[in-house]
Simulated scan of single mutants.
Amino acid sequence: MLVLTRKLNESIQIGDDIEIKIISIQGEQIKIGINAPKNVEIHRKEVYLSIQESNNEAASTPQNLLELLKNKTPKP
């Protein structure tokens, strides 16, 4: 892990397209701004992990779920 020290209004550049800027510092809280292309998804870590968990659950759904549901539906 790379650890950098930044002051208010200073930035970190990631590649050519992503800039992370320190917007404000209040006590133990730091606000950051992120400039990145619209196609780059940016999430808080806990939200990202929740999305990953939901995706994994959806991927583990049986492939033949539609067929199973069709077989359980009463026929007229």
Rank of each mutant, 00 (worst) to 15 (best):
M1T: 10
M1G: 15
L2H: 09
V3L: 07
R6G: 00
K7N: 02
N9I: 02
E10C: 00
S11E: 13
S11P: 02
I12A: 01
Q13T: 04
Q13W: 10
G15C: 04
G15A: 07
G15R: 13
D16G: 09
D17Q: 07
E19P: 01
K21A: 15
I22Y: 00
I22P: 00
S24T: 05
Q26T: 12
E28K: 13
Q29F: 14
Q29D: 14
Q29G: 09
I30P: 02
I30Y: 13
K31Q: 11
K31S: 11
K31H: 11
I32S: 01
I32F: 03
G33R: 05
I34R: 05
A36V: 07
P37A: 02
P37E: 01
N39Y: 12
V40S: 03
E41A: 12
I42Q: 03
I42P: 02
H43W: 05
R44Y: 02
K45C: 05
E46W: 04
E46C: 06
V47E: 02
V47W: 01
V47D: 05
V47M: 05
V47Q: 07
Y48V: 08
L49P: 02
L49Y: 04
L49D: 06
S50T: 04
S54W: 01
N56G: 08
E57I: 15
A58V: 09
A59Y: 11
S60C: 11
T61Y: 13
T61V: 15
T61N: 14
T61E: 14
P62S: 11
Q63E: 15
Q63V: 15
L66E: 14
L66G: 14
L66Q: 13
L68R: 10
L68F: 12
L68I: 11
L68T: 11
L69E: 12
L69T: 13
K70A: 12
K70T: 14
N71V: 12
K72I: 11
K72Y: 08
T73Y: 15
T73G: 12
T73K: 15
P74N: 10
K75P: 04
K75W: 07
K75M: 10
P76R: 13
P76G: 15
